[in-house]
Structure formats: C-alpha cells, structure tokens
Design a protein around this nucleic acid. Structure first.
Lengths: 205, 205
DNA sequence: AATCATTGCTAACACATGTTAGTATATTAT
DNA sequence: ATAATATACTAACATGTGTTAGCAATGATT
C-alpha cells in the first residue's frame, strides 16, 4: 500500500555533542518531576519531545530505563564527590559544609534530575532498586561517619549523627519550593542561609 | 439465574466507633504511602481491606476522594494547632519549639497520613488542589511570621525566615526513614535531637 | 546515483485501570 | 417472620497504558 505524506517528518532537535537519547532523558526529568513517574505517560513525553510515542523506542529501551539513567546519574555524582571530600585533610565541620554546599549546588543546577532521583526511586525495579538503596545507605553512612568524627573531636555537638544527616539531606531537598516561586532568592544568599542554620546548629561553640 | 455461594461473604471488620469508610481511608493511607497514589490501584486497596474492588464504592465516592480526606484531614489538624500556638503569650523561640514538637508528634503518630499529604497532594484535582496549596502557603506564612517576630526581638538569628521554615518542615518530613529502619531510635530521643539541631541553629546566643 | 543505517510514522496489541449495573446476601428495624 | 437497609459479589465497560511490528522518509557513505 502506498501512502503519500504531505508534511515532512518531525525530528528530535539536538545541539552539538548531545545525542537524541540525552534530549529524551532530559525531557523525561522535567516530566517526571512535574507529574511523578507513574502519572507521566510516554505519550506525554513524546509530545514534549515533539515526536510520536513509538518513535521514542528507537532511542530508549523502556520507560523504566529513563528512571535508571536519572537515578544512577545523580547517585554516581554524589558518590564521586563523597570520595573527594573524604580524601581531604580538613576538619569535620569544613567537610560537612562542603557536602552541604555540593548538595545545594546540585539542587540548583540539576534540579529536575536530583528531585526525581530523590522522590521517584521507589518505582525502580528490582535489580536496580536494591542497588540504588544500597548506594543511598552507603552515602548516608559515610556522611554520618564524618559527623561522628567531628563529635569525637569536640567540633560538633553530641547529637545523633544519623539523625543529623537525615535532617540535613531533607532540608536541602526542600529547595524545590523556590523553583516554583516567582521572587527567587539568589543562590548565594540561599546557600549562606542554609549553612547558617544547618551547620550553625551542629557547631559546638 | 440462580447462583449458590458455598462460602459466606467477606465483610470489612470494624471496631467500636469506627465506620467502614474510616477503615478504607486508613488502609488507603498505608497503600498510598507505600506505592504512591498513582501506582496504588483500587484492586490493591480492596485486597488490603479484604473485599472486592467494586465493594469499596458502597462506602466511598472515588479514589480521589480518599486523597481529599487524607490531605485535608492532615491540613486541618495543622491549621488548628497553628491557631492555638498563635494565641499563646510565650516568646518566639518557644512557639517555634512547640510547632516543631507538634510536627514530630504528628509524624510519629499519624505517619502514613502525614506522609501522603506531604508527597501526594499533587494528584488532587482542581477545586481541591488550589485550596490545599493555599492552606499550605498560609501555614508557612504564619510560621515565618513567628520567626520574624523572634528576629526583631533578637531572640533569633537574622536569617531569611521563609528559608528557615522550609528547612524545618522538610527536615521533619525526613523522619520517614526511621519507620523503615529496624533499630528505631525512641521518640523522645529523636525529638530532642531535632530540637537541638533545628532550634539550636536558630537561637541567637 | 545507489546503498545502508537512522529515525520517524501509523496501527495495533495486550493489559491494567477506575468505575458502574445489576444482583445476591447480611444485618437491622418493624 | 417480614420488610427494609446496608453491604458484598460478579461481570463488564470505557479508557489509558507501555510497547511492538512493519513500513516510510531521511541522512550518511560509498
């Protein structure tokens, strides 16, 4: 059967040095953040990319793969940064401050991915799910260990280190709200406010 | 057509002074927290309640109604408590501490509902959605106003009050992790740790 | 110009979803 | 006991879902 097309086919627009898959993953991040992984459909994603749903599968394996890419992309960046911080020869408070700064930066510069990785990892399927949870647990353990060292050195108040880690991580995750807000506080002011409250609350003075 | 049933019909078990609808709403809270609102199906819920999916509709209007009940139930409790705190004649730090204590208590005693209200309100539909968002905004404004009063009185460090509110609220939201953890820290210790870090970080000393 | 890989399209599938209709069974009130 | 109400069941519906098959257009390579 012969079919005549009057308008030309759509095409995923790419910039220099970015694959079409990267474009899809990036749009998926926005969409998953906005509606949640389950509520965001492949047809929604296709529309955002400017193409039909089926066409996406020339570039990706499945919807879940998109979530993998996002979650592990973020997790790997955090793990790599933790390696660097641990290797440094500074005191514990400075290490904590550097971790906090990195988190805030990631939240500001890679907002959508970080947010999705934080909130939607539940929907990973099982070889990946356990893997992700392990990485998460490890990261928190290492973070807590730094705080515990600080407590032994009397740099930091004698609080429960794992509790402190959770407080810090979740507090930073709350930056979401500014991205929706119109009167955005500038990044530097935001960072220094958070450092004051979070690190200030730990310090033994 | 005549049908003979060999086993008796299931029935939603209720305790004294609880309607069957309340049982459903409560099970829905667990389920929505565990899988997310979109991923949790009415058939899942039916199974958790011990009944067929269609039977649920003798007690509830729709799946979304369940989310309404949960979200506004929680929101109303917080609003009511805010009324009480504002009416008190204590200083700002004490008011903040009381708000924090209430949040922690709610998180511990009504964990599932609070969690769902916090994470799944996005899936409300529009007359309710705007309403909920407004309530949320109002609550945060009133919280921030208390902190600002404290700053003017030199009780509290000169930080950005809305930032402080977000940090506090999200930090408390992070208690989730303990409910999954086996070695649960006891509630009092948890609370005092959080007060130390959060309120301690605000205090001007 | 011919060939081949890439990328898009339409159509369709199998399945899960929320919900309703109609009916049977339990419980409560008369 | 009878009637009335509350609650459950089976069956089915319409719709939305992720995904695949098969083919058409485009771009790159020879």
């Amino acid at each position: 059967m012969l079919v005549y097309y009057l308008r030309s086919m759509a095409r995923i627009k790419i910039e220099k040095n970015t694959s079409r898959k990267e474009v899809i993953v990036s749009k998926a991040a926005s969409l998953f953040r906005e509606k949640g992984f389950k509520a965001a459909s492949m047809r929604d994603l296709a529309e955002a990319v400017g193409v039909e749903a089926a066409s996406l599968y020339n570039h990706i394996k499945s919807k879940t793969e998109l979530l993998h890419e996002l979650c592990f992309g973020v997790a790997n960046r955090f793990m790599h940064h933790m390696d660097q911080v641990e290797a440094k020869k500074t005191n514990s408070i400075d290490k904590v401050e550097e971790l906090v700064r990195f988190h805030i930066n990631e939240m500001i510069n890679h907002y959508e991915e970080v947010y999705v990785s934080d909130r939607e990892w539940k929907h990973l399927s099982d070889p990946y799910l356990s893997n992700f949870q392990n990485q998460r647990r490890m990261y928190r353990k290492r973070f807590a260990a730094i705080i515990e060292t600080g407590i032994r050195n009397k740099e930091i108040k004698a609080i429960d280190a794992p509790t402190a880690v959770l407080i810090i991580l979740h507090a930073i995750g709350g930056i979401e709200s500014w991205h929706r807000s119109t009167k955005k506080i500038d990044a530097d002011a935001l960072t220094s406010n958070m450092i004051t409250i979070l690190v200030g609350g730990l310090k033994n003075d």
